[in-house]
Simulated assay, not measured.
Amino acid sequence: MTSAPDTADLQAEMAALRAFSAAVGSDPSLTQAAGGNTSIKDGDTLWIKASGTWLAHALERDIMVPVEMMPLLAAVEADDPAAEQAHRFTIAARNPSGLRPSIETTVHALMRQRVVAHVHCVDTIALAVRTDAVAELGQRLDSFNWAYVPYHRPGLPLAKGIALHRAQRPDVLILGNHGLVVAAESVAEAEALLRTVKQRLRQDARPTPPADTERLSQLAAGGYRLPTSDAAHAVALDPTATKIAAGGSLYPDHVIFLGVGSAVAQPGETPADVQSRIESAPASILFPGLGVLMREDASAGADAMARCLADVTTRIPKGAPLRYLSEDENHELTNWDAEKYRQKLDAAAAKR
């Protein structure tokens, strides 16, 4: 239980949290689209970002949802499936928007500190997808109170994995094949900790040549377009990155917004050829040596994740041992109601 701050202090911290959230949400190296979330505890109430909303919008929209923390924690401890449905613990009278709390609400509730930030930092992910992640991270985080949590599906499975480290009261969590969590007693401390950890985990992306946008534009006729960010092309312009992407799915949000794995065109193929060969219309297609094309109706979330794929894969060294999500892990993400809700919100936002 966290002691309740006075009203003025809470209002000041909430304002600081909104500013912090907007800054994190506007940095694609930390957060992409509706991914990532922040929270603050007010006694037994947990204020957390709503599922499907963007941290980048924190200063212009009401994206925080109040949740009763103690019943939620009791559900986690009892291994109650209700813990997967955080919206059942919202305080309706203080939630006029009717939005659902983040899929990751249990992560924030389990952290004992007052302020928590969960981000999909590309530098972190580039390490967290490796089978030797613990050894690599240990060299960089030796002075921190940190813990590594192997991959679990977001929701109750991930909560149970984090709960194993609760007595340690870590300030930093590295989530295998997923991302980074930092926790502190104030927004300012959480912001400083995030900045320091990100610097410790920094890996420079390999430089790539420019994309052949003229050729890509020719190929795009018939249902595809260029990505919104030129940075997204890098995954197809760096042979190591292309090979890594072709190997499968590395983290959950890729599966949710781009689908399982990556579609890589063979020499001379058009988007129609790729679709015919794999019997689907992928959200993105990698054309080695040329760049990337996005399906015309791809959402803003898909575009953000296309850039994330490039940012992550160009930071992974050639020959690094990798852990891809299994077929079962991909399946449980694509068939999970909580993620279907987030996809629905993303699709609706794309039409505005």
Results as ranks from 00 to 15, higher is better:
256 I>C: 05
281 A>I: 13
110 L>A: 07
285 I>R: 01
174 I>G: 05
111 M>W: 04
158 L>E: 02
165 H>S: 05
313 T>L: 08
1 M>R: 11
238 D>M: 02
153 R>E: 07
61 R>G: 09
246 A>L: 08
307 R>F: 02
67 V>Y: 15
209 P>H: 13
320 A>Q: 12
49 K>H: 13
252 P>M: 04
251 Y>D: 00
59 L>N: 12
199 Q>I: 03
141 L>N: 10
70 M>I: 14
119 V>S: 11
210 P>T: 13
156 L>N: 08
246 A>T: 10
94 R>P: 11
85 Q>R: 12
231 A>F: 11
123 D>C: 09
309 L>H: 02
98 G>Y: 13
92 A>H: 08
160 K>N: 04
345 L>H: 14
319 G>F: 11
55 L>T: 07
108 H>E: 07
269 E>T: 15
36 G>V: 07
3 S>L: 09
144 F>G: 00
15 A>K: 15
72 L>C: 10
212 D>N: 15
176 G>R: 04
35 G>K: 08
138 G>V: 00
116 V>H: 01
166 R>G: 09
82 A>D: 15
176 G>W: 02
7 T>G: 09
306 A>H: 10
143 S>N: 00
295 R>C: 14
336 W>K: 06
209 P>M: 11
305 M>N: 12
285 I>W: 00
322 L>T: 02
208 T>R: 03
261 G>S: 08
151 Y>I: 08
111 M>P: 05
279 E>M: 05
